[in-house]
């Protein structure tokens, strides 16, 4: 059987929120090590990879690996009923035909429980190679969210270029062009406010702003976001979840025809 108890149930709720605009049906894979998700959007343009280590949980038992096939709109409806400070418990039998969810709150003494029917989902898995990227940028996730939101008024495509000058986001449309440049900045005492740029060689790639905006739904999970780019490769946008896991998005670039 599978049983997992997460004191800060809100983390799981935020993970669901970070994915649900990209995919509808998803398998959560449970192993003795972690809960993980790998899924693509229906257009096969973006891929989400989530991992939450068993060490994030107060209690974690997984007798044999299983996949929990979930419909995210339904899961999201259930999580709307979870309080901010609730503990979350997940339970499933090895047959994995239903998932028990419990939201407990010691302070108010409430226990809410839900039984969710699981689905068999045929998921296309992709082998994502471990690549050494030419540019790696760490920046405040709120800043990244603001930039990709603001640039939508200029156009549909965002050119992201990493040079010696810094990291530049550009969008061009009918009304003109907008550029936002982020320079390396490690002046603040708070590490989460730092912008660090590791560049081996300059990279310039074009991406759909619509997708970049979907990814910023993960902002509440992490104060920092890490962008990794190499010429002609999908960008990786990673939101680390403390030391316990991550939500990573891969987005295929737009290329010249």
């Amino acid at each position: 059987m599978f049983e997992a108890r997460l004191a800060n149930g809100n983390i799981f709720k935020m993970i669901v929120e970070s994915i649900r605009e990209l995919v509808v049906d998803v398998n959560i894979d449970c192993s003795t090590e972690e809960l993980s998700i790998q899924c693509m959007d229906s257009a096969h343009v973006a891929l989400v990879s989530m991992s939450l280590s068993q060490s994030a949980f107060d209690h974690f038992r997984c007798d044999r690996s299983l996949s929990l096939g979930l419909n995210l709109p339904n899961v999201s409806k259930i999580f709307k009923m979870m309080g901010r400070d609730d503990t979350m418990v997940l339970k499933a039998e090895d047959s994995a035909d239903k998932l028990m969810l419990m939201f407990e709150n010691d302070k108010s003494g409430t226990i809410a429980d839900f039984e969710l029917k699981l689905m068999a989902i045929e998921a296309e898995q992709l082998g994502v190679p471990d690549t050494a990227y030419k540019c790696s940028i760490s920046m405040p996730s709120s800043e990244f969210q603001r930039i990709v939101r603001d640039l939508q008024v200029m156009g549909d495509t965002c050119k992201i270029s990493c040079t010696k000058e810094g990291l530049k986001f550009s969008a061009t449309g009918q009304i003109g062009t907008g550029n936002i440049l982020m320079r390396q900045n490690v002046a603040s005492e708070k590490e989460e406010d730092h912008v660090t740029i590791d560049m081996e060689e300059p990279v310039e790639l074009n991406f759909a702003l619509r997708y970049l905006n979907f990814f910023t739904k993960a902002t509440p999970l992490s104060p920092t976001v890490i962008l990794k780019m190499s010429p002609g490769l999908p960008i990786v946008i990673e939101y680390p979840i403390e030391q316990l896991g991550h939500v990573k998005y891969y987005l295929a670039p737009k290329m010249e025809e």
Binding site: M40, A43, H44, V45, A46, L47, E124, Q125, L126, G127, V128, P129, T157, N206, A208, L233, P234, Y250, A252, P253, K254, M255, E256, E257
Partner: peptide
């Protein structure tokens, strides 16, 4: 004009 690529051109099926 730019064309949106898909992930299949970059990643393999395992």
């Amino acid at each position: 004009p730019l064309k949106q690529g898909t992930l299949f051109s970059f990643f393999n099926k395992p």
